[in-house]
Write a protein that binds this DNA or RNA. Structure first.
Lengths: 216, 216
DNA sequence: GCGTAACCTTACGCACGAGTAGGTATGCTC
DNA sequence: GAGCATACCTACTCGTGCGTAAGGTTACGC
């Protein structure tokens, strides 16, 4: 019935682990281009050079596939950052290294980052996934601030620190979006700019300088 | 054929303008709860107390409906902010008033904001809409910084300013997300925190203090 | 060489939800 | 109180794309 002429033995049989990576690569690419909803499993399969049922066999549902993408990418990113920011450096050095690694990663995976994370923010099932990873980041940053504070003999409520850390992380994510949209921009420069906004403010806070609302 | 018993004359006939607002209210609510894709026109119609064809007749396609929601909400927000930040105040006052208005608005429309904007970031057609409004905000902030700089006899490249402004706006949006997720948090306090991060950093920048990367 | 298991395919079922066709009631104007 | 416009309804069509059933094909052990 099928006219599969053996003139095309082009289909190599590959071990599962390899195929899974290919599929994830394709999935990230397609999800990025189209967004979660508009991406079709058929297109992902085709892009991976494989047929749809294989995707289901290996990575499961469309949702599960997306989560698998998220996990792989976040793991890679966390690794890149963690490897850069050694815990024994002074706070500004840690922040700088961490930011540089972060923006470097985003710069190197622009398309992957851009829509994958923007996408994940939107729909319920993924939002929680993403929130978890963001929480880890916030905790790290807050811990860093706390450490720096104690070294100066000062102390601040945990919530307060968390919010500041959240703002820093948020600003970084926004600049990451900006970076992903501006192919000509250099990651290193972006990291420097971020330091200019973040560190100058944070350093003041660490020294006890605060801004108080006027009693207008 | 239809057993519409006249025992329920409950359906008031209402003028178009009123119904449109009801529909938009319902749409914002449902889009927020479910996200753009998962939201069904049927549910929106039901929530608005009307039937589906009416929605199509008045507000058009699902996409057009969502954009209408976006427009209404952004217009409201811009109005709230513009009304608060008079252009003749000193920069920190303007920033403070603007931020307070912004977080006040988000606090009062938590569900509306949260998923509407998070959603809009994700999918192509809306991303541009949202980017346009964000651009307006960034421009305002950048203009503010520029104004403050000139007053001090200094000057900085436009791109540089834009990036700083972008970071500030981004941090604000993130804190807005945080606020939307924490029902107990007070908008005013959040605005103060944002000032502490943003203004202390920006003020330094305005004074020419900058952070430079180490030559590691 | 030959079975068996893993790899891989084509081709379909099926649900879900956007958008529409066509008809009914209600208020407003003269 | 006839007529017209506008508000409003029920009940469909139809595309799209997820997920699967059932069957080929290659590698590898013995």
């Amino acid at each position: 019935m099928l006219a599969r002429v053996s003139s095309t033995p082009s289909f190599k049989r590959l071990p599962r682990a390899v195929r899974e990576q290919q599929m994830l690569d394709a999935a990230v690419k397609v999800f990025s281009r189209r967004g979660f909803h508009a991406a079709s499993m058929d297109e992902i399969a085709e892009d991976a050079g494989i047929s749809k049922p294989m995707v289901y066999a290996y990575l499961g549902t469309k949702e599960e596939l997306f989560i698998a993408c998220l996990h792989r990418e976040t793991a890679r990113m966390m690794l890149a950052i963690a490897g850069a920011a050694a815990p024994d450096l002074p706070p500004d050095q840690r922040l700088w290294r961490g930011l540089r690694a972060f923006f470097g990663f985003v710069g190197a995976h622009r398309d992957g980052w851009a829509v994958l994370y923007r996408q994940a923010r939107g729909s319920q099932p993924f939002a929680t996934e993403l929130a978890a990873m963001r929480a880890r980041l916030v905790e790290v940053v807050a811990g860093m601030l706390d450490h720096a504070l104690r070294a100066r003999g000062r102390e601040v409520a945990a919530t307060e620190l968390e919010v500041v850390a959240y703002a820093l992380v948020g600003a970084s994510e926004s600049l990451a979006d900006w970076l992903a949209d501006h192919p000509e921009a250099e990651p290193e420069k972006t990291a420097t700019r971020m330091m200019n906004v973040a560190w100058l403010g944070a350093a003041q806070l660490l020294d006890g300088v605060t801004w108080r609302p006027p009693t207008d």
